[in-house]
Amino acid sequence: MSRTATIDRETKESKVHVEVDLDGTGKSQISTGVGFFDHMLGSFARHSLVDLVVHTIGDTHIDSHHTVEDTAIVLGEALRAALGDKSGIRRFGDACVPLDEALVQAVVDVSGRPYCVHTGEPEAMAYVTIGGGAGGVGYLGSLTRHVFETIAFHAHIALHVRVLAGREPHHLVETQFKAFARAFRDAVAFDPRETGVPSTKGTL
């Protein structure tokens, strides 16, 4: 069974193309025009072992918000489509990931019910801009929570992200993406003992 999906979305603010293969090896081709976000999506692909292609053209002459948001929308839709009926998966994933001084826990439930809880980030992170030097487009720290909320909503998963420690803005964001990646990887992995959909309702 192929767990792949290709989704395209075009608005007046962006044009987004996403391809996913849940059973890949973590290969990625990422181009959004927001360098730091490219780095985060590449990190997600590598540590989730999801093969990921993302090509986004957005109104980065305004800022990075629409580009990042719309990419997250399409990524969530692609993950949901690739999961299919979710038969045979583990459903739940939990990961605690360090990056030097930063430590983040992410928990995923492929529940069919979109929900996101994001806690623990220092309040100042919302106002930090990462990257954007030499004419590039910066990534505002407030986008991180928005990305996870958007992915969770469109992928129909429950996602809890808890920042437990951290100081350096780059590390704080990257650790969240890595923790989410590892939790998602476990949640969508096949369980050899599971013969159907892992729910008492019979559907997710």
Rank of each mutant, 00 (worst) to 15 (best):
Gly133His: 08
Val53Phe: 11
Ala187Trp: 01
Gly136Tyr: 06
His65Glu: 10
Ser111Asn: 08
Leu79Arg: 04
Ala183His: 02
Phe190Gly: 04
Ala81Tyr: 01
Asp8Phe: 11
Val68Asn: 00
Gly93His: 00
Gly42Trp: 08
Leu103Glu: 00
Ala134Glu: 13
Gly84His: 11
Val110Gln: 01
Gly133Glu: 15
Ser111His: 07
Gly166Gln: 05
Tyr115Gln: 12
Asp100Val: 09
Gly26Arg: 07
Cys96Ile: 15
Asp38Glu: 13
Val74Tyr: 01
Leu79Trp: 00
Asp186Cys: 04
Phe92Trp: 13
Ala155Val: 04
Leu164Val: 03
Ser142Val: 14
Ala158Gly: 15
Val97Gly: 00
Val16Thr: 14
Gly120Tyr: 05
Val53Gly: 04
Asp51His: 02
Tyr127Ile: 09
Ala165Met: 05
Glu19Ile: 10
Thr32Gln: 11
Ser31Lys: 14
Ser87Glu: 12
Asp94Ser: 11
Leu99Ala: 03
Lys86Met: 12
Met40His: 06
Thr32Ile: 05
Thr11Ala: 09
Tyr127Gly: 15
Gly133Asn: 11
Leu159Arg: 10
Val147Trp: 01
Ala189Gly: 10
Ala82Ser: 07
Leu99Trp: 01
Glu168Lys: 05
Asp186Val: 12
His47Met: 04
Val16Cys: 08
Leu159Lys: 09
Tyr139Arg: 14
His66Ala: 02
Val117Ser: 14
Gly93Ala: 04
Leu75Arg: 07
Thr203Lys: 10
Met1Ile: 08
Tyr139His: 13
Ile30Glu: 03
Arg162Glu: 12
Phe180Trp: 12
Asp38Leu: 08
Lys178Thr: 01
Leu52Gln: 10
Thr203Phe: 12
Arg3Val: 04
Glu101Ala: 14
Glu123Cys: 05
His65Trp: 11
Glu149His: 14
Leu22Ser: 03
Val117Asp: 14
Ala152Gln: 04
Asp100Gly: 07
Glu19Ala: 13
Ile89Phe: 03
Thr11Glu: 05
Ala152Met: 10
Phe92Leu: 13
Gly138Gln: 13
Lys201Tyr: 14
Thr71Met: 09
Ala82Cys: 02
Ile30Asn: 03
Thr56Lys: 07
His146Ile: 10
Val107Pro: 00
Ala187Asn: 01
Ala124Gly: 06
Lys27Gly: 09
Leu79Asp: 00
Leu79Asn: 01
Ile151Met: 08
Gly88Asn: 10
Leu79Cys: 04
His39Leu: 07
Ile30Ala: 10
Asp70Asn: 14
Gly166Asn: 07
Pro192Thr: 09
Val74Asn: 04
Ser64Asn: 05
Arg80Cys: 07
Val163Met: 15
Ile157Phe: 05
